[in-house]
């Protein structure tokens, strides 16, 4: 093999230079050769054999015992050669898995895609970023025939691939809900039955579902143990928690959910989030909900989509660009 012959020549050159004059420069050649050996998959025992042959060529009078000692060393290094080849094979497998997960993440992305509705009285911004490759958060928009906007935000307890797979099921359960008006409490009640019935008993989902009726500017909502969002009241300029009580999905199939109503006035905002936003952990501990409100206030003059993008960027920076949990933030801004 050309590479191998080439390597032998290089090794011989570098070795003889070093033995002639033991300087740093010559030693550095050794490091370079080491990298090349790794690149061309040359095993430790092959290197010893190379060393031995070169040494015999350079010093034909080498004592026989010294030459023999290399055969012993070669035997000793055999185990390292095997470990090295195993490492190579694992690296290869890992690369394959990584590629597969990337493809799965793309498939998931396509599966869970939702279109943000475009309506006159409401400006909508949404962002969802997974902590790792696959997302265990999910949001969903739907516009019914009466121009009412349904918004769902859900978070699987657990992270990574199992959580992401579970979320695809929620999406299909939502798609197969009856076409008539999506009352938030009945949406959660039917999803709860699906989750209770179909999902691993140690996997649970928190979810918030809201329905905005543009005709009377009424927002009805219900929550299944989901992290409460915020409501911004433009008239008083104050934020409050969008409190709603309800058990997480998948614990008890008979769970009933209470529905809440809110009149949305011009300039008001509804902020929905996943716990990846509030569980944002910085060097000084968790961020407080007040800090989050501060970020919202600072970006309030922007379009809803720019707002969520900016808030995400600021929180990402606070965590040194290392999300610990999937992050989802939705802002519904009522137009004046």
């Amino acid at each position: 093999m050309d590479n191998r012959e080439n390597m032998e020549k290089k090794y011989l050159e570098a070795l003889s230079t070093y033995l002639k004059d033991q300087n740093e420069q010559a030693l550095y050649q050794g490091q370079k050769i080491s990298r090349l050996h790794i690149k061309y998959n040359i095993s430790p025992e092959e290197i010893i054999s190379m060393h031995k042959n070169n040494l015999i060529d350079l010093y034909p009078d080498l004592p026989e015992k010294v030459v023999d000692s290399f055969d012993f060393l070669l035997e000793v290094m055999m185990g390292y050669g095997i470990a090295y080849r195993e490492h190579q094979s694992l690296r290869h497998q890992q690369q394959e898995l990584k590629t597969e997960i990337e493809i799965a993440a793309n498939v998931q992305h396509t599966l869970l895609e939702t279109e943000i509705p475009d309506i006159k009285s409401l400006e909508i911004g949404a962002i969802s970023v997974p902590a790792r490759q696959m997302n265990g958060d999910y949001y969903h928009f739907v516009e019914d025939e009466n121009e009412c906007i349904g918004v769902g935000i859900a978070d699987v307890i657990g992270k990574g691939i199992p959580a992401a797979l579970c979320m695809s099921m929620i999406k299909y359960a939502m798609d197969s809900l009856p076409e008539h008006r999506h009352e938030p409490n009945s949406v959660l009640e039917s999803l709860n039955r699906v989750v209770e019935h179909n999902v691993d008993p140690s996997m649970f989902i928190t979810m918030f579902y809201g329905l905005y009726d543009p005709h009377n500017r009424q927002f009805s909502y219900a929550s299944a143990g989901h992290e409460p969002g915020f409501y911004y009241d433009a008239a008083t300029g104050t934020f409050s928690d969008l409190d709603a009580k309800g058990l997480l999905l998948g614990v008890d199939k008979k769970t009933r959910y209470r529905q809440y109503e809110k009149k949305v006035n011009g300039g008001d905002m509804i902020i929905l989030l996943s716990d990846g936003v509030t569980e944002c952990r910085t060097n000084d501990g968790f961020i407080e909900r007040e800090t989050l409100i501060g970020f919202i206030k600072k970006n309030m003059h922007l379009q809803a989509q720019e707002m969520v993008n900016n808030i995400y960027k600021q929180l990402e920076k606070m965590q040194n660009f290392q999300l610990r949990d999937d992050f989802t933030l939705i802002i519904l801004k009522s137009k004046v």
Binding site: I157, G158, K159, P201, S202, V251, E279, R324, D325
Partner: peptide, 14 residues
């Protein structure tokens, strides 16, 4: 404790 821990307790509780 994050929500993963919550999952363990709910599982044990059930």
């Amino acid at each position: 404790m994050d929500s993963t821990g919550l999952g363990v307790f709910v599982g044990a509780f059930k």
